[in-house]
Design a protein around this nucleic acid. Structure first.
Lengths: 229, 229
DNA sequence: CTTTAGCTTCTTGTATACAAAGCTGCATAC
DNA sequence: GTATGCAGCTTTGTATACAAGAAGCTAAAG
């Protein structure tokens, strides 16, 4: 996902880095209920650290939109608000279109070949995998295309949004139907990219993301239900 | 700019909020040299606080891309890298196009009228104002259009980018030539919006941002020179 | 029975202290 | 003359302590 630095030397992985990864996963997967206040003392104890490094992590996650914060009232799990999700998908759609557009211009043949190989390997076992694995594969596919745009900021923006909608991707991947269409649509996008047919690639990507947007109401409903059962 | 909460009640403005605003301004305007390490003790003292709240602010600014951070080596001013700026402008261009597209669909007549009034008032005195004021006016114009998209996440993304390219906007506004063309181009965008001519609005906005992108090499050169004199 | 005032407790905001890692510079060895 | 290693200083990472604000609870009054 977002992780970057390859543990420069040794592999110290400072404690704040470790709890950042863990808390981020928890926030992405709504392991806290929407709006649930996070008790700093409790959380710190559960990670075996003091409040100081924990708060630094919490601040980072707030800045990334994965947690909420109100002064003097503390940190809490972000809400799962339909309007916000729609907004995120709308922005995502725009970023994805930029990605394919730039990728057709800038990706090398070798890069496209690697993407192709990656997706062939993924698709082969896609229907047998766990929803979590499918969601991650899906994210990787899209983020690899963004990477081919050679625009790091575009990639980072997309990654930030993907982290925030991860939970819903997960929910949708639990239905075989969504998995199948995802698979098919990725193939179309890939084919257009390999042909370097920019217009077609944009059309396919646009259709792909828009379709997900239409299914969003159902997925959000399911996602909220899941949290309260 | 980004600021949000209207000081819920009273006006306590916690110290971390205060130093956040200040440090953000300093980072936006490159009041530290690119790559310059920030001494926590020194900085904390200069703000009259301890390292704890300062570090929370620094972490936030790192997450927003306004500062750099390397574990065990501390915080430093972000670099002023041409490639990064180009990437940001490319993403910005995409977001701005989304903004006008959505704004023509969703803005009410009243909202468009307000935008019109705002820009008329600004344009009148544009050539007499300070570069700082012009840069802020420019940002506001674009952010108001993004707000008309009714998409909060789109607005936030654009604001985040604007904060990161603020310094270069400032530099460019010091030249009367850039100010004039900005003014003219905004008028064109505005006219298209008022006509609700989506295609034209997109064309104008696209031309506007692309033109800035072309001038970017010069502006970056000037910006870097300014920092080392 | 409901409401509110005041007290208690819990939680967050911030300062400070200390440990550990990094950097600098000098001295010694080759 | 260059390189290497060690000592001391600087700076960051994290724990802890304490102050101040919010929340909850009890008790008394209407």
């Amino acid at each position: 996902m977002t992780s970057s630095q390859p543990a420069n030397r040794k592999s110290p992985i400072s404690s704040v880095d470790r709890i950042y990864q863990q808390l981020k996963q928890m926030a992405m997967n709504y392991q806290f209920r929407p709006g649930e206040p996070l008790n700093e003392v409790e959380l710190a104890a559960s990670f075996g650290v003091s409040r100081t490094p924990l708060r630094e992590v919490l601040n980072r996650l707030v800045a990334e939109g994965l947690l909420d914060f109100v002064p003097r009232r503390g940190f809490s799990c972000r809400s799962l608000d339909a309007k916000m999700i729609f907004d995120l998908y709308e922005v995502r759609c725009g970023l994805e279109i930029m990605s394919v557009k730039l990728a057709t211009d800038r990706a090398s043949d070798l890069e496209l070949k690697h993407l192709h190989q990656f997706w062939q390997a993924s698709a082969q076992t896609f229907m047998q995998r766990s929803p979590i694995e499918c969601a991650c594969c899906d994210e990787q596919f899209h983020e690899q295309i963004a990477a081919l745009s050679q625009n790091i900021e575009l990639l980072r923006s997309l990654q930030a949004i993907n982290a925030r909608v991860h939970y819903l991707r997960l929910i949708s991947m639990e239905q075989a139907h969504y998995r199948r269409t995802t698979c098919d649509e990725h193939q179309l996008i890939l084919a257009a990219l390999l042909d370097r047919d920019q217009e077609l690639a944009v059309t396919c990507m646009s259709a792909h993301v828009s379709l997900r947007q239409e299914q969003l109401v159902e997925v959000i409903k399911e996602g909220i239900a899941r949290l309260y059962m």
